[in-house]
Design a protein around this nucleic acid. Structure first.
Lengths: 223, 223
DNA sequence: ATTATCTATAGATCTATAGATAATGC
DNA sequence: ATTATCTATAGATCTATAGATAATGC
């Protein structure tokens, strides 16, 4: 932190400085919001974590909610884009006979890989999303940023399950996303419940199981 | 509300009055916490909703967190007890050959029925639990109140899947509870995503699918 | 005589704004 | 000359406590 602030004094263009400070603010906010939610974090907490004055946050963001939404938006397009690409790749590859499991692998594994490879900031973002996802306003943010990818997934699932009612497909997706969000939240509950056999942070373990598990679930809904 | 406050003036024993006020406070807190979380609700909000002075909350509860925990605890033993009983009934009935789907029906359907039959207060509690469940401190509350039922479920699943690694069973449960919590949260996301085909409040639709879906998922994890 | 409820208020925070200062930009 | 950062502060809330008042309890 002290090293960071001296480094800050070295010559930099204003654009660089702006970008760097913005990123630090977003990182700090992301971390704190992921732990305590919108109302559980004060602008002062965020400023303190970055090492700047609270008022600087108002220089960059209109208000607290804008900061919150900016945190959500920053990485949303990355994960959304990656998953869309993976789904398109799968669609091309599978041709006329896509499978539920194939589509889910593209959708879920691609996302989990991003967090696994992205390190702490991405893991924080994952927890942030999970926390946001089961609130009403949060769910509306999800709509805005993730509806296109999800509807793309749904369209492939429909082709894989041509005799299914839309209702069954959507409820299946509802289960899938619940399991995914519970994973991203990393609450530590499964660690304690399993007596240490499983670990909340072990996204590899989830990745190994979730697509197969959920695909079988979909297939079982046949009327 | 005005009718309630005149009714309040009618003769009542102190014990009755205490019980009634306590219940009103807990109901109001439950509703508000389910919408906005611990930090998103002020004691004043709760008091206002009940129609009493903020300070009365301190007469009944030590502080805000105690109120929060009391909301959680009030109905936890009911759902926990009902599910335990249902699992025991199923165990007795299934004898030496319990199935995954049978155990999940006992565990999940019993819970969903409680919310369906319990009306608004129970639906609020469900949303409250869902919201609590994907926070760290919240997950610890879940440990305290729900570990026994969940471990009972796990023990039956182990008997139904004798050649499975514990790890697979616990991750399977992790998926199940994620799907359930996503249901209890009732964020309205599935409504919008499905263009009105599905409804967040339609626990019957979930009940019709979730146990079958998840049971098939478990069976697919076989190595 | 005890318990439920309200009044008054202390003390701490929190968000947000106005305006000063200190850097970089041509 | 513009942009990044800080100082000072207004105004609103929020939690929590002390102590008064108004009911019920024997």
């Amino acid at each position: 932190m002290s090293e960071g602030s001296t480094a800050k004094r070295t010559r930099r263009t204003k654009a660089e400085q702006r970008a760097e400070t913005l990123e630090q603010i977003l990182d700090a906010a992301e971390y704190l919001f992921s732990k305590n939610g919108l109302y559980g974090v004060t602008l002062r907490d965020v400023a303190q974590r970055v090492g700047v004055h609270t008022t600087l946050l108002h220089y960059y963001f209109q208000d607290k909610l804008s900061l919150f939404e900016a945190v959500f938006a920053r990485r949303a397009s990355v994960t959304s884009g990656r998953r869309t690409a993976a789904l398109e790749r799968y669609e091309a590859e599978a041709g006329d006979h896509p499978t539920v499991e194939g589509a889910l692998h593209a959708f879920l594994d691609t996302d989990l890989d991003l967090y696994i490879e992205g390190g702490e900031p991405w893991m924080n973002y994952a927890a942030f999303c999970a926390r946001v996802s089961n609130t009403r306003e949060g769910a509306e943010l999800m709509d805005v940023h993730f509806d296109p990818v999800v509807l793309k997934l749904v369209s492939i699932l429909k082709r894989a399950l041509p005799d299914y009612a839309d209702e069954d497909i959507f409820w299946g997706y509802h289960f899938v996303t619940g399991a995914l969000m519970n994973t991203l939240a990393r609450t530590g509950r499964i660690d304690r419940l399993s007596g240490g056999i499983c670990h909340s942070d072990d996204f590899d373990a989830v990745k190994k199981r979730i697509a197969k598990f959920m695909a079988a679930g979909f297939l079982a809904l046949k009327a």
